[in-house]
Amino acid sequence: MLYRKVPKNGDELSILGFGCMRLPMKEDGSIDEERATKQVRYAIDHGVNYIDTAWPYHMEQSEPFLGRALTDGYREKVKLATKLPSWLIESREDMDKFLNAQLEKLKTDHIDYYLIHALVGELWDNVRKLGVADFLDKAKADGRIINAGFSFHGSGEDFNRIVDAYDWDFCQIQYNFLDEKNQAGTRGLEYAASKGLGVIIMEPLRGGNLTNPVPPAVKEIWDGAPAKRTAAEWALRWVWNHPEVTVVLSGMNEETHIEENLKVADEAYPNSLTETELQLIKKVEQKYRELMKVGCTGCRYCMPCPSGVDIPLCFEMYNNVYMSGNADETKFFYAARLGGILGGDPGFASQCVQCGECLEKCPQHLDIPTVLESVIEELEGSDLEERVVMVKQLFKKQT
């Protein structure tokens, strides 16, 4: 495992961090705790020392899970990160209330890396007005938090002013080869590093969109590279190639993914990609931009939908029509997965009543109701009910 230093405190953090937003799950939607615990501990045993969670992850169950998973001496082996849910803060007292509850959930007396979560300009203005600087100063002074930072999903202009507004130790931004100019982007990465902040990267694979599935046209480009690497390895190496990056978070929920990521994290030095390799990645980026219709990362911040729409899955299916090139197969899986046939309740795009609640929650600032109309047009149509019946019959025969 390679490690990089946080400039302000000298902590040596593993370049691969374990993100606990997409843990393995059981059929009933709960965390598969036995499997997830083994995964987290295996990663720690193999050098990962930065573990990231947050209040809302897994419907508020990620933090309690980690409190249990990090027993037996594992808490002492890692730097633990969690986040203050900025959108729920209505008073200065709320900040202490949430932090104290998180300490209890995580079974710890301190948070090593504490972030103000999912900031955009308006949320920052609100928590700043309510006294977040005083909260962070006092929480650091009394030892409940060690390092103060923020995660960010707003515009580049807001990013710089938030960086300048407090003596932060670190920040967390979305960054991958499709997001060089999105949100904080490359400019934000370089600006934060110039101010001495450690920079934690989220969504290096754009919620899996850069790896699952890999469109045939993109695979053809990867296959033409002299170095034979998976799409995930190319994407991770691209991020780690930037010396300003401290840690890259990966939502590893498959054992094979953990093994692959650990292997790459042994080798991914900054500035190690050749110019030829960088140009290859640029070609892949351009191809993705031709193919993708909606920039959803699958973070599920928009969920639950009051009308039951499974927004991220609708968008995943919508992108798959264009990335797979197989519309008929995608329509089949849309009926199966969104129709409740494989478990759960129906979550079709056509259930949307355009209440607009999701618009305030989306970190990518997508016009979700409008995109859902395109999903309806592309994937539902007059034969949706017929497809649902056919899929039900098919699965009935197989069981």
Rank of each mutant, 00 (worst) to 15 (best):
E275G: 06
E275W: 02
E275A: 14
E275M: 01
E275T: 07
E275F: 01
E275C: 01
T276S: 12
E277G: 11
E277D: 07
E277P: 13
L278C: 11
L278K: 14
L278P: 14
L278D: 08
L278R: 15
Q279K: 15
Q279Y: 11
Q279S: 14
L280Q: 09
I281L: 14
I281A: 07
I281N: 02
I281W: 01
K282G: 02
K282C: 02
K282M: 03
K282I: 01
K282D: 14
K282Y: 14
K283I: 02
K283F: 00
K283G: 07
K283Q: 15
K283L: 06
K283A: 10
V284N: 07
V284E: 06
V284S: 13
V284I: 13
E285P: 00
Q286K: 15
Q286C: 02
K287D: 01
K287E: 15
K287T: 05
Y288A: 12
L291W: 07
M292D: 05
M292H: 01
M292K: 11
M292I: 15
M292E: 13
K293M: 09
K293I: 06
V294E: 08
V294K: 14
V294D: 09
V294Y: 06
G295Q: 07
G295S: 12
G295A: 06
C296H: 07
C296M: 06
C296T: 09
C296V: 07
C296P: 08
C296K: 09
T297V: 13
T297F: 10
T297Y: 06
G298W: 10
G298H: 10
G298A: 13
C299T: 09
C299D: 12
C299R: 10
C299H: 09
C299K: 09
R300Y: 07
R300V: 12
Y301V: 07
Y301N: 08
Y301E: 13
C302N: 02
C302H: 02
C302K: 02
M303N: 04
M303T: 07
M303D: 05
P304Y: 06
P304L: 11
P304M: 01
P304T: 04
C305L: 05
P306C: 10
S307F: 03
S307I: 00
G308N: 00
V309C: 05
V309W: 03
V309A: 03
V309Q: 02
D310M: 02
D310K: 04
I311K: 03
I311H: 04
P312H: 04
P312C: 03
P312Y: 03
P312V: 01
P312N: 03
P312D: 08
L313T: 12
